[in-house]
Design a protein around this nucleic acid. Structure first.
Length: 478
DNA sequence: CTGGGGAGGGGGCCC
DNA sequence: GGGGCCCCCTCCCCA
């Protein structure tokens, strides 16, 4: 009579008396196929740790909900949250400092109180600490990030950054034909997910342009030569999701969550991002009205949700009175006024609400657009571009090349043979911008753009992206 | 390779 | 709070 066993992993019937090279006896009785043993070895090394951590975290969360072994009381807006000091210590730099100071009194409960964020926000963060899931939506993301900044929770900040950038994905994305498209698809995806729990899988689904902007802050040096993101490293916000709880697992890799680079450094990759280049290569006109208004609404929604004090820095005036400053939730920058913070945030969100209707470049500020338009498209500078001498309406002429206009003195015009490019004076006075060419609807659009005051968000309602020659000026400008 | 200038972008602050 | 100005810095192009 033969004894027959079963491989528990392959459900393969194995004759225990049949010792063949394809099966391994474990513990003298259990027989496993070699494939099963191999898979067990792989499975153990790769997943056991994560499973264990996940189970441990769930167990801790259950203890928290049952208030078992909780040795921390956190008071927020009159509401008391109970938690474990070990968990808080491993999740928050703020609590790490706080608990380190009272490390000797390990038997007594630790009490902490906060009035810089709401109980709802802290509840969200505490839930994340104990579950690894962050419940973000458009109305709480700024406050969550602000609180996370206060609590020194870099992983939460990274979550929020990714969320905001995917939410505010307003830059144009280039398709395979070199044409820049509106990002309604990615924005809709962001819209769809914004009310949902920020699961790791959704984080991985952040659009490429969002990722590149995020990496621009953290991995600038590495991606400079490969801003397209094809072979770029994973953003930190994604990497950390691979574990059930990165803070507990590794106490946060400080290198991985390095703070945002200073503003001056980030400009290094400005032109490689190509986020504002909306030039199309075909002759069709693309109406971005919907995109602009949609993005503007998204940005306004976020800005409106800014807490009254995003962060306070202990700065004192000369008379020793405290000076309140607004802290950027993305970086260490602080400003005196909320409006300045709003302006500053554009450099993080990538929002460019001021499009040039002549060349489709977009700007973060109206003054930058105006300066660009006057310099590039209106030739306002009374300086000869060639010899740099001052010119007047008498001894100088406006020369037009494509959408770019500049002035040359009569001498330089004769020397360089630009006479055929001289702009008609009458046309100039009337605001024509394309020189000797016939006035077209596009020309009128450009004229209107600077004549009217509604260049910014309002201009989006009539925004027409025009066909622009892929001239050196355009490519050089970006 | 290098220096100068143009263009773009960000901060501070005044109106 | 928004608009605007000034200043500074950085990047890129070109001679």
């Amino acid at each position: 009579m033969r004894k027959v066993g079963c491989c528990p992993f392959h459900s393969e019937r194995v004759r225990l008396t049949d010792v063949s090279s394809n099966h391994i006896t474990v513990g003298g009785a259990l027989r496993l196929s070699r494939e099963a043993v191999t898979s067990i070895q792989k499975w153990s090394s790769a997943d056991m740790s994560a499973i264990h951590q996940s189970c441990l975290l769930k167990q801790l969360d259950q203890q928290r909900q049952q208030e078992l072994f909780c040795d921390c009381n956190i008071l927020v807006e009159g509401q008391i949250f109970r938690a474990h000091r070990n968990v808080l210590y491993g999740s928050s730099g703020y609590f790490r400092m706080l608990l380190s100071q009272g490390a000797k009194d390990t038997l007594e409960s630790v009490n902490a109180s906060f009035d810089v964020f709401s109980s709802e926000i802290f509840s969200i963060i505490l839930d994340f600490i104990y579950s690894g899931h962050l419940e973000l939506n458009s109305s709480n993301v700024i406050e969550v990030m602000s609180a996370a900044s206060y609590l020194q929770m870099n992983d939460v900040i990274s979550y929020c950054k990714t969320f905001i950038k995917s939410f505010l994905d307003i830059s144009a994305k280039e398709d395979g034909e070199g044409r820049y498209l509106c990002l309604s698809d990615s924005m809709e995806r962001a819209h769809d997910r914004r009310e949902n729990v920020m699961e790791p899988s959704t984080l991985c689904d952040v659009s490429m342009s969002s990722q590149t902007r995020l990496w621009e802050h953290q991995e600038e040096d590495h991606i400079k030569e490969d801003i397209t993101g094809v072979s770029s490293p994973e953003p930190s916000g994604i990497q950390q999701n691979s574990s059930p709880h990165p803070s507990l697992e590794s106490q946060i890799d400080e290198e991985q969550f390095s703070p945002v680079l200073p503003e001056r450094r980030r400009r290094g990759s400005r032109k490689r991002t190509a986020t504002s280049r909306l030039v199309t290569e075909d002759t069709s006109l693309i109406d971005l009205q919907g995109v602009v208004s949609h993005c503007s609404q998204k940005a306004d929604e976020l800005y409106a949700s800014l807490p009254s004090i995003v962060g306070v820095v202990g700065v004192f005036n000369k008379d020793s009175t405290p000076s309140m400053r607004y802290k950027c939730p993305f970086c260490t920058h602080t400003v005196k006024r909320k409006a300045d913070l709003k302006r500053h945030l554009r450099c993080h969100t990538g929002e460019r609400p001021y499009p040039c209707q002549a060349c489709s470049k977009r700007f973060t500020r109206l003054e930058h657009l105006r300066s660009h338009f006057e310099t590039i498209h209106q030739a306002r500078k009374l300086v000869c571009r060639k010899c740099k001498r001052h010119v007047t309406e008498i001894n100088g002429r406006v020369v037009t090349e494509g959408t770019r206009r500049y002035r040359l003195c009569d001498v330089c015009i004769q020397e360089s043979g630009y006479s055929e490019l001289i702009t008609d004076e009458d046309g100039e006075k009337e605001g024509l911008l394309l020189g000797v060419e016939e006035e077209t609807s596009e020309n009128r659009e450009m004229t209107w753009a600077m004549d009217d005051d509604d260049l910014a968000e309002d201009s989006g309602t009539d925004l027409i992206i025009q066909e622009v020659e892929d001239s050196d000026e355009d490519t050089g400008g970006m």
